[in-house]
Amino acid sequence: MTNETGKPALPSSRPKRRLTDMSGRLGEMPPLKAAFVVLFVLWWLVLAFFYLFPGVDVAASRAFFEKTECEPTSALAAVCGIFPISQDKALGLLREAIFYLPIGLGIFIIYRLVVVLSHHGATYDGKGARRLLAGLTSLILGPGLLVNVILKEHSHRPRPRNTDFFGGDLSFVPAGDFSGACGSNCSFISGEAAGAGWLFCYAVFLVPDRYKLLFSPPLIAVALASPVMRLAYGGHYLSDVILAWLASVIVFIGTLYFFTRNDTAGSKND
């Protein structure tokens, strides 16, 4: 290809300029806002990946599935088996504890808010109060409303253990496909993984500085282990747990930015 002068045309630099302009605009944003934008775009990219390549979900669940011989009364060519980890009682108790941990911390946030709001004048920590309000609001909006009330009740995606790939009787549908046969409390997306994503943000943003070294590492470990457990249990696909975890982080960061966008850098943290 040549330009009007007959000389070879140089490759267009417009795509590079767009990327540079985009990164420049992100760099000009407050950190929380930039993180929200980047993670929001990432969420949709991850969803698109799992929708286009549904075999990744099936392969990830299959790694935790153990086939068994079908009963004589089972349908011909049916797949029978279990997710062995789901039979472990000790892990079951651990899962129950992790399930209720975000709720317990939500109640603890309310207590901390009452303490903060009981102060007046020079001892009142307005920035701390706004961060706590952001944490409580994000727990309600993210794992509460977005995940458990909206998506899990209307996505219709059967859980792995309910599909014909893993001993169930329902057909598999990819992430983002709302045409499945699940009636309620469905697989897309994981409520417990959403709670784990919120736990991660709590550990990073809401644990008081003087307690971070003690409490943040175990909270982060739990926040990373819980989604893996849901996958291993056959309760959710890989896409369900990744997207749920990310969704709560996005809601938390967006809510925190909304509540603290007028604060100056370096807030007091109890």
Rank of each mutant, 00 (worst) to 15 (best):
Thr5Arg: 00
Gly6Pro: 00
Gly6Val: 00
Lys16Gln: 14
Arg17Leu: 00
Thr20Pro: 02
Met22Tyr: 15
Gly24Asn: 09
Glu28Gln: 13
Ala34Glu: 13
Ala34Gln: 05
Phe36Cys: 00
Phe36Leu: 09
Val37Gly: 03
Leu42Thr: 04
Val46Arg: 00
Leu47Thr: 15
Phe49Gln: 10
Gly55Leu: 03
Asp57Cys: 01
Asp57Asn: 09
Val58Met: 11
Ala63Ile: 03
Phe65Asn: 08
Glu66Tyr: 05
Cys70Lys: 11
Cys70Arg: 11
Glu71Pro: 06
Pro72Leu: 08
Pro72Asn: 08
Thr73Leu: 14
Ala78Gly: 06
Ala78Glu: 08
Val79Gly: 08
Ile82Ala: 05
Phe83Asp: 13
Pro84Ala: 15
Ser86Gly: 04
Ala90Ser: 12
Leu91Thr: 00
Leu91Gly: 11
Leu94Ser: 03
Arg95Asp: 06
Ala97Met: 04
Ile98Lys: 06
Tyr100Lys: 06
Ile103Lys: 14
Ile103Leu: 12
Leu105Val: 03
Gly106Met: 01
Gly106Tyr: 07
Ile107Cys: 12
Ile109Ser: 10
Ile109Leu: 15
Ile109Lys: 07
Leu113Phe: 07
Leu113Asn: 03
Val114Arg: 12
Val116Cys: 13
His119Thr: 11
His120Gln: 15
Thr123Met: 13
Asp125Tyr: 03
Asp125Arg: 15
Gly126Phe: 09
Gly126Leu: 12
Arg131Met: 14
Arg131Asn: 11
Arg131Cys: 07
Leu133Thr: 11
Ala134Met: 06
Thr137Ile: 14
Thr137Glu: 02
Thr137Gln: 07
Gly144Tyr: 01
Leu145Met: 10
Leu146Thr: 00
Val147Lys: 00
Asn148Thr: 12
Ile150Thr: 14
Ile150Leu: 12
His156Arg: 12
Pro158Gly: 09
Arg159Tyr: 08
Phe166Ser: 02
Phe166Pro: 04
Gly167Met: 13
Gly168Leu: 07
Asp169Phe: 14
Phe172Ser: 08
Pro174Glu: 11
Phe178Met: 04
Ser179Cys: 02
Asn185Thr: 04
Asn185Arg: 14
Ser187Pro: 01
Phe188Leu: 11
Glu192Gln: 09
Ala193His: 06
Gly195Lys: 01
Ala196Leu: 02
Ala196Tyr: 03
Trp198Val: 01
Leu199His: 13
Leu199Arg: 10
Cys201Asp: 03
Ala203Phe: 07
Phe205Gln: 04
Phe205Glu: 01
Leu206Pro: 02
Leu206Met: 06
Leu206Glu: 08
Val207Asn: 07
Pro208Leu: 11
Ser216Thr: 15
Ser216Val: 08
Pro217Ser: 06
Leu219Lys: 09
Leu219Asn: 06
Leu219Ala: 08
Ile220Ser: 02
Ala221Asp: 02
Ala223His: 01
Ala223Ile: 04
Pro227Ser: 06
Pro227Cys: 10
His236Asn: 10
His236Glu: 06
His236Thr: 04
Ser239His: 03
Val241Asn: 10
Val241Ser: 06
Ile242Val: 06
Ala244Gly: 13
Ala244Cys: 06
Ile250Glu: 13
Ile250Arg: 15
Ile250Trp: 09
Ile250Gly: 10
Val251Arg: 00
Gly254Cys: 02
Tyr257Asn: 10
Phe258Glu: 10
Thr260Tyr: 02
Arg261Glu: 02
Gly266Glu: 07
Ser267Ala: 09
Asp270His: 15
Asp270Gln: 14
